[in-house]
Simulated scan of single mutants.
Amino acid sequence: MSWSKLKQQLESFLSPALIGKVEYRATSYRYAPDKSGNCYITVDQKNILNMSDTSTPIRWYQTEQEIKNDPNILIPVSEDEIEVIRQESKGNIPEDRLHIMARSRKISVHAKALLGAQAALSKSNFTVAATTYLSTSIEDNLESNDILYNVLALMDRRVGKKRILNMSEQIKLKHPAVQYFYELRRRTV
């Protein structure tokens, strides 16, 4: 599918409040047809999500430890998760330490998932991902671990106000890029 047709289809699904605010752009290399161009998403004429540029306002993580130490990532820990650790330790650990251990386990899994999604984003081809997005249900795109699918779905007009407002807890566990576009959409709902 040509870029102009793909762009037209993506923009036809944009939420009405984001039309004119969010744009899909692509650069190509006229004299190097074998080299793929860059695709990116702009908000108010500013390059926000670029597949190959980490200087955007979105935070990109380099290591798992950086994710674990980020105070902005809130990992909810349930009583069941604390109970699992209590059972494994046979009650030899103080109560306040159980919560810390449960959070530590959960954030380790979360850090691996975030870095995996970020690596997949940097290696992915925007046009292929966007074409796949258009042929996949909106629910599958929202539940996906792929950052680009989440971003495209959050800007989609098929995701209504009620669903956007009910997603706040889910979004806290997503990559900062997804959180950025969630906040953008939430402000325009």
Rank of each mutant, 00 (worst) to 15 (best):
E66C: 06
P76N: 05
I58C: 02
D44R: 00
Q87Y: 13
W60P: 06
N92I: 14
D44Q: 04
V84F: 12
I85H: 03
Q45W: 13
E88Q: 15
E81W: 08
I93R: 03
I93H: 03
R97V: 15
R59N: 10
S78Q: 04
S89M: 12
D80L: 15
Y40P: 00
K46M: 13
V43L: 02
D80M: 12
I75R: 04
I93C: 00
T42R: 06
Y40L: 01
V77W: 03
I82E: 02
E88Y: 14
E81Y: 09
Q45K: 11
K46I: 13
G91W: 13
D53Q: 04
P71S: 11
I41M: 03
L98W: 03
S55F: 13
N92P: 01
S52R: 14
I67N: 07
L74P: 00
R97T: 15
P94L: 07
L98V: 08
C39L: 05
S78E: 02
H99C: 03
M51A: 09
V43H: 01
V84G: 05
S89G: 10
E95N: 01
I85M: 07
W60S: 00
N72S: 11
N38K: 02
D44N: 09
P71R: 02
N69I: 12
E66R: 01
S89W: 12
C39G: 05
N92L: 15
I73M: 08
I75Y: 03
N72D: 07
P94S: 06
W60C: 01
S55R: 12
I82Y: 03
L74V: 15
I93Q: 00
Q65D: 10
N92G: 11
N47M: 13
T63D: 07
E66M: 05
D53I: 12
K68M: 13
R97W: 12
R97I: 15
L49V: 11
P71K: 08
Q87H: 12
I41H: 04
I85Q: 06
N38F: 12
L49S: 00
P76D: 02
R97M: 12
I100R: 04
M51P: 04
E83D: 10
R97G: 08
E95L: 08
S52Q: 07
D70N: 11
I67L: 06
I75T: 10
S78Y: 09
N69C: 10
N92C: 13
N69Q: 11
T54I: 14
W60V: 06
M51K: 00
P57G: 04
R97Q: 10
D80T: 15
W60R: 05
L98D: 05
N47G: 09
I58N: 04
W60I: 07
Q65F: 13
